[in-house]
Amino acid sequence: MKRFVLSRVFYSILTLWILTVIIFTMVRLTGDPALLLSEYPGASEADLMAIRENWGLNESWITQYRKFVGNVFQGDFGRSFQFGVSVTDIYFQRLPNSLQLAAAAFIISIVIGVPLGIISAVKLDSWWDNIGKLVALLGLAIPGFFVALVLILIFGVKLDWLPVIGKGDHFWDVKYLLMPSFALGWYFAGSMLRLTRSSMLEVLGSDYVKLARLKGVPEWVVISKHAFKNAMIPIVTLAGLQLVLMINVAVVIEVIFQWPGVGSLILGGLTGRDFPVVQGSLLMAGAMIVGVNLALDILYAYVDPRIRLSG
């Protein structure tokens, strides 16, 4: 077990290191930030050089990379070109907003996906199952931003119930949260439903469920205790991954609702060629995903000896 954990941790660190190289190189291919940020298009070459020197862009890539990685180890992503303040400050100012949106979307995806998935599996080929299949299909086929626009049209414009942009002044301004979180959670609800259904189906066909039924255990106990409990493992896995993804892929939803999250920070950083912002937030996104995968790998190995002995 110890060997397994150590090797997984090693591979995760290796992955993150390769990721820093990829991000560092690619962000420098997006163009020269000095050209974009010099206020006047006709700025002299000397001005541009001064800007580049100020940002440390005149040094060789190797020196820049060494500084970048060295600072990352100290928890420092550098200063934003656009805002002049520390990237960590901006990032952690935005992160709670993203977490709030992701948490709400997460709850919505679970509330829609899991119960409907269970009913679909239990009442196979019934009307419930058909509704479940439809929701799963539409969840994957309707892009989140289309859901967002339709919601805005219905609840923001026609009915005038909900505000269409912003996040409100207080953390608990729920009415600002409803539309963006539904639009974001929609896609994930579809995949959650699919997984719950197939996982439940697998467990319901197993011998111990048949045995429980033969013993005369009431059907609802069979479903809730014997079946659902065992179908939980893949569901929890997916849920963990989805929560992390939701924090990072909400860009389009954030742009539509002008939600000040991490996604729009990345987008703004890319269009403004703000290298430190892009490097920092992309590395954070990568670290979150690698971290969750690592945690899940170890959790699995802990539960299932076959994995830790083979890996």
Partner: peptide
């Protein structure tokens, strides 16, 4: 692995 560590949409915007 490193490639898969970035969310698809973010990576696409990056590129």
């Amino acid at each position: 692995d490193a490639w898969l560590a970035l969310p698809t949409l973010i990576f696409a915007i990056f590129l």
